[in-house]
Simulated assay, not measured.
Amino acid sequence: MTLTSTVLVRTREARRQRRSGVPRWALIGAEIAVPVLLLAAWWFASANSTNTFFPPLRTILTRLAELSATPAFWTNVGSSVGNLLLSFLLACAIGVGLGIALGTVRWLSWLLEPTIHFFRAIPPVALVPIFVSLLGFGNETRILAITLSAVFPVLISTIDGIRALDPERVSVGRIYRIGRWDRIVTISLPEASPRILSGVQVSLITAFVVMIASEMLGSSLGLGAMTLLAQQSFMIADMWVGILVLGILGYVANALLVLLRRRVLRWYIAIRQQEKNL
């Protein structure tokens, strides 16, 4: 039995012991119960609402069902999801690649880091009007704005992860004359992956915020544009539908990333749990 499998087995046993007092079904039920209770509270609190800007939840869900039967609604959803996914993947690729270079090559880090920290200090949403002014209102502008805004969390976390590598492991790789690229793939990236994926999760949130802002500024496609147009046209139920769908989309995107992070870092989580049990 390998060391990794031994750690995984012991971690599962320790996890079962800790959870012996609370059944797993109870934990899952508690996780589901909170949003259900919030929706129920919203339903009853708004049931008799006569406020134009706070319609009953029943009206919002009815309007959601009506809009979901139209091609225009799914065109807006597809535009938002497509821009978010493409920009997020580009930001991760650029951030990890440049972060490895800056974390490894010291003179390149001294040369570029002041500029990186300058642009990182600018609020991401503030970049959207700049790109629109320079490049117009095309879809490429939104993708560029989302990508450049979301790249900094991945970039900074990758630099920190590479610089925090265990010097002994790096020295062993050099002693055995492992090539630079092989050292990056087999030593640097696995050890830095916990910090990198933490930055990736922050990057997703940033990309989501800038996606909405970019669609609200001069765009006719996307959930952000749909929500803003509904607000300006006093179609309040449609506005609430846009907000609700954006919340669901953000929750699903974050949940998928958390599942991916847990699967990729299964070995790291197992080691951390084993250390706690010692």
Rank of each mutant, 00 (worst) to 15 (best):
T4K: 09
V7Q: 10
E13C: 06
A14P: 00
R15F: 08
R15A: 04
R16F: 03
Q17I: 10
Q17C: 09
Q17Y: 05
Q17W: 09
R18H: 04
G21Q: 04
V22M: 07
P23M: 10
A33P: 04
P35A: 03
A41E: 04
F44C: 01
N48M: 14
N48R: 13
S49C: 07
T52A: 06
P56N: 06
R58P: 00
L61D: 01
T62D: 11
L67H: 02
S68Y: 01
A69G: 14
P71W: 04
A72M: 11
F73W: 08
N76Q: 07
V77T: 05
V81R: 01
L84Y: 06
L85Q: 07
L85I: 14
L86Q: 04
S87N: 03
A91G: 01
I94R: 01
I94C: 12
I94S: 07
I94A: 13
G95M: 02
V96T: 08
G99K: 13
L102I: 02
W107D: 02
L108D: 02
L112E: 00
E113W: 02
E113L: 13
P114Y: 00
T115K: 00
H117D: 07
F119L: 15
R120L: 10
A121P: 02
P123C: 04
V125F: 00
A126G: 03
A126R: 03
V128W: 03
V128R: 05
I130Q: 09
S133G: 14
L135G: 07
G136V: 12
G138Y: 03
E140T: 15
L144F: 15
L148R: 10
A150P: 03
V151E: 00
V154T: 13
S157G: 10
S157V: 09
S157Y: 09
D160I: 15
D160M: 14
R163H: 15
L165I: 12
L165F: 10
D166W: 12
P167D: 06
R169M: 15
S171L: 12
R177L: 10
R183S: 12
R183M: 10
S193T: 11
P194R: 08
R195M: 15
V202K: 05
L204N: 05
L204R: 06
I205N: 01
I205W: 04
S214E: 01
S214K: 10
E215K: 14
M216Q: 13
M216V: 00
L221Q: 15
G222F: 06
G224V: 01
A225S: 14
L229K: 14
F234P: 06
I236D: 05
D238V: 11
W240S: 03
V241H: 00
G242W: 03
I243C: 05
L246H: 06
I248P: 07
G250W: 03
G250T: 00
Y251C: 09
N254S: 12
A255Q: 11
R262M: 10
V264T: 11
L265R: 10
W267Q: 06
W267A: 09
A270V: 08
A270G: 10
Q273C: 02
L278G: 11
